[in-house]
Amino acid sequence: MANANQTAGAAQEEEQVASEYLTFTLGDEEYAIDILKVQEIRGYEPPTMIANAPPFIKGVINLRGTIVPVVDMRIKFALGKAEYTPFTVVIILNVGKRVIGMVVDSVSDVILLFPAQIRPAPDFSASFDTKYILGLVALEQRMLIVTDIAQLMTSRDMELVDEAADA
């Protein structure tokens, strides 16, 4: 009994443990991703094009000797305008032993979220963009879309990996 109580207590405590999320905007939408998946943020530089790749895969860049593919989420999600200005940023993600660059409109901030704050997203059809949504967070007037970025980047939809995780 005491044991069960303890584990229940631990679970409750775990619920109270907040995690940090990085938020970024794509068009008018605001997304949040686990900050532990983010390696660094850098400016956009024109990548080397890869032949016959889907349009949202911009190509590959040289990240201090490592060849890193860059995807433009604005093209992928058809959000905002895929313009490349000196302020365009690339979030370098470290997911599943892979390094992937992700172009977004802008990076907003780093916020602390408790698991209780993340509300389940309404169940739409299993369309592409809702499949990787962990939940929604209401923050004053803003709505954050909490995304499982690792799942998304290794999925077949992104065409980034040979053996997709959900294949």
Binding site: P47, N52, A53, G65, I67, V99, E159, L160, V161, D162
Partner: peptide
């Protein structure tokens, strides 16, 4: 190229050129 990306038909690998750019 496959460490972080996938196999690309017609391309066996990549290299970094003198100007820091990637060439396939």
């Amino acid at each position: 190229l496959e460490n972080n990306y996938r196999r690309v038909a017609g391309v066996s690998g990549a290299t970094i050129m003198g100007d820091g750019h990637v060439a396939l």
